[in-house]
Computed example of a mutant assay.
Amino acid sequence: MSDLAFFIPAALGTVAVLVRLPSLRRNARDPLLRAVVVFLLTATGVFYFGATSTIVNVNEITGVPNFAAPLLYSLLMACCGSGIILIINWRGGPPARIRRSTRWCAGTYAALAVAMYALFALGEAPVERLEDLDTYYANTPYIREMIVLYLVGHSAAAVIMASLCRRWLSDVSRELRAGLALLIAGYTSTLGFDVCKFAAVGARWAGTDWDVLSTEVARPFVTVSFCLILLGFGLPLAVQRFKGPWRDWTRYRRLGTLSRLLHGLTPTTAVVRMPLLSTVGVRRLHRESGIHDGLLTLNPYFDLTLRARALADALAHGASDDDAAADADAVMVVAAVDALRADPERHVIASSRELRTEPGEERDLVRISHALARILSGGPGGPAPEREHA
């Protein structure tokens, strides 16, 4: 099998690690972030050291035939352990239970990794095997046990992680549920690798040659599983990263009609110019601030009687309480804007001694903006306002 099947996932893992490193530097004590980085590092190491060219280089550098085998198997155990720890920390729970589970998992897989080197040292594997060490030494004392031990550890980790993800699946929704489904598929694919390896080794024990299962059929399972697992971990993190800016942009856009209507009502000395490269979150806050300032300027012109009539009319036409309130607020705001423009000297503001209730303080500005859009485009009989989802 071409080394590209190993180096491509290794490259993806390296990119993922580099993306997470800045966050790790800022939050070095975050156990979940540490678990993510360790898992990505060990998984990347497995693919890098699993490539045939790397195996050759390791054996040449150490001068020990097949030394790349225990090195690769120990990295695999580290990857399995860090994957379980990642799921444990990701799911959360009582801190004491998380720490206890983490210690048990780390200790178990560290012991397995140490056992790999001990068994390799006790056994004899003088003939370098680059692709079929599992089956070639399937009947060699100690090397045989090393092979079985890494397969058992790898299979157990896949079963544990798939089980943890499956139990968690019913408690979550949306992007996290999709991520867990990808993880389950990835770890199930990992079991396909183990089944092929066990079958090939078992065939050698029975005196049969099924080496093709180990050398050809098993390897694609690894690449597929890694890509699914990487997507499973990455999808929720990516969605979470962009969800906030997307919500800000959506709210910013939906407030456009109300913002444009109130634009220019506030004295120019109170207007704050936005830098060209401001984030969408800052722009959303600036737009909301401008709307509140505009409503405060309009406050003396609010006609609460007009609002009450508009509210009753909207309810009479079958609007919901929230939509009716938004329609009534929109009608009052439009009337207040007209009244303010008809009073260029601001006599009403100068003589006002009463601050009327401002509709934007306790009501949904987005609904008011949509109601305004309907009114300005043809009247209250237009389509119902689009609701903003959390």
Rank of each mutant, 00 (worst) to 15 (best):
L164T: 04
S214Q: 12
C165N: 12
G318M: 09
V148E: 09
T223L: 07
P220M: 00
P95Y: 09
R100Y: 10
R353C: 03
G63D: 07
F302M: 07
L261P: 07
L18N: 07
A218R: 02
S289H: 10
I160D: 03
P275L: 08
G360H: 04
A350M: 06
D323N: 13
Y73P: 03
V331P: 01
L376I: 04
D338L: 13
E362D: 13
G290N: 14
R34V: 02
G202C: 06
V212C: 02
D194I: 01
A218Q: 06
L33F: 04
L191M: 14
A238T: 15
E216D: 15
S369R: 06
M274D: 11
L112V: 12
A162K: 05
D364S: 15
G244W: 09
Y109V: 09
V272P: 04
M77W: 08
G234W: 00
V334R: 14
W90G: 06
T266I: 12
A373T: 07
V337E: 02
L119P: 04
G179A: 03
T44L: 09
L261I: 00
G318Y: 04
C165P: 11
T297D: 13
L4R: 08
D30G: 10
D327W: 08
K243E: 12
L306Q: 14
F6T: 01
A125Y: 03
N27Q: 12
V17H: 05
D364R: 05
F6L: 11
D303K: 09
W246S: 07
F233H: 08
T42A: 15
A43R: 01
I8C: 11
R144C: 12
V239C: 09
R99W: 00
A336R: 05
A11E: 02
I84H: 05
R363P: 03
L12Y: 14
T190M: 14
A162P: 06
D321G: 00
A69P: 04
R29V: 08
R260Q: 14
C196L: 07
P275E: 13
R251G: 02
L183Y: 01
D293W: 00
T14S: 15
G92V: 06
R367K: 11
R97Y: 02
A106E: 05
S214R: 00
G382E: 01
T135N: 04
A336Q: 01
A319N: 10
V212L: 10
F49C: 13
P9W: 03
S74H: 10
G93Y: 04
V159F: 15
R367D: 02
N299Y: 00
I88C: 08
D343S: 09
I8F: 12
C165R: 06
G107Q: 01
G244C: 00
S82K: 09
